[in-house]
């Protein structure tokens, strides 16, 4: 049976993981390859490297980071943050990424989704949607959540699928950073509207939140960053908890 995926996101700046990383057994807690190795041992299903600076100066560092992570762990690896063109996607994939995540660029130039899907296959193209709840639906935001894109998340997810996206990474801006749980209503609305997998993101704070998003939220995968950086909530503990709830996971 197809299992629900647990995905760890590493926010990377200048080749170092930022946000609190407190694994006790790591010598260099900020080293992405070392953190990825630890996640692999714990049973993570996928890794996302998010370039949070995405400036020209850091591109070379990002390529080194991707190469280092992809040489250490043999799991699906997604790279996001500042993928604006076919050349950006090519650089990430050539360095070892299996998938690229498009956000602002996909809304600005939706044909980029199709171009990349034709070249690398739909499985390599994730469209990331940052959205906030509104009375009449879910408003999509771009430019790291600073600008209203005047689109509805459900409608945009459907268009992204039609244009060739292989997965949707849906982040609730209302929940992101709150550790109060995923937005299950929004996730279910998007997940049931498309045939491609939906990765829920934003709000993970405890084990129960993951169970909720896989049941009420109809999510195919759940992504979190800081919760896995702390040794008190390990990936393996989470997976055993989910299994106990009857949710299929890879153990």
């Amino acid at each position: 049976m197809l299992t629900k995926r647990i995905i760890a996101c590493m926010d990377v700046r200048d080749g170092q993981v930022v946000k609190g990383v407190q694994f006790q057994q790591l010598r260099h807690a900020g080293d992405p390859a070392e953190l990825a190795r630890r996640y692999n041992v714990e049973g993570i299903d996928e890794v996302v490297v998010l370039d949070i600076t995405a400036t020209l100066e850091t591109r070379q560092a990002l390529r080194r980071t991707i190469h280092a992570v992809a040489s250490e762990i043999f799991l699906p690896l997604t790279v996001g943050g500042g993928i604006r063109s076919e050349a950006d996607a090519e650089a990430a994939i050539d360095a070892g990424a299996d998938k690229v995540s498009l956000n602002t660029a996909a809304l600005r130039s939706p044909e980029l989704i199709t171009t990349l899907a034709r070249r690398y296959g739909s499985q390599a193209v994730i469209v990331a949607i940052d959205a906030k709840r509104r009375d009449d639906g879910y408003a999509v935001y771009v430019r790291s959540g600073t600008s209203d894109a005047a689109r509805d998340a459900v409608e945009w997810a459907r268009e992204a699928e039609a244009r060739g996206a292989g997965e949707i990474l849906l982040t609730s801006m209302d929940k992101d950073g709150t550790r109060s749980g995923f937005d299950c209503g929004m996730t279910a609305a998007v997940s049931t509207a498309v045939n491609i997998p939906v990765i829920a993101s934003g709000g993970a704070g405890g084990l129960e939140h993951f169970a909720d998003v896989f049941t009420a939220g109809c999510a195919d995968a759940a992504l979190a960053a800081s919760i896995f950086h702390y040794a008190d909530t390990s990936v393996s503990e989470l997976k055993h908890f989910l299994q106990g709830r009857g949710i299929p996971v890879r153990l």
Partner: peptide, 17 residues
């Protein structure tokens, strides 16, 4: 084939036994 009632989508993406 997919099965929307069971949440089984096509493409089949992820870890399976």
């Amino acid at each position: 084939r997919g099965d929307s009632a069971r949440g089984l989508k096509v493409p089949h993406v992820g870890w399976n036994a």
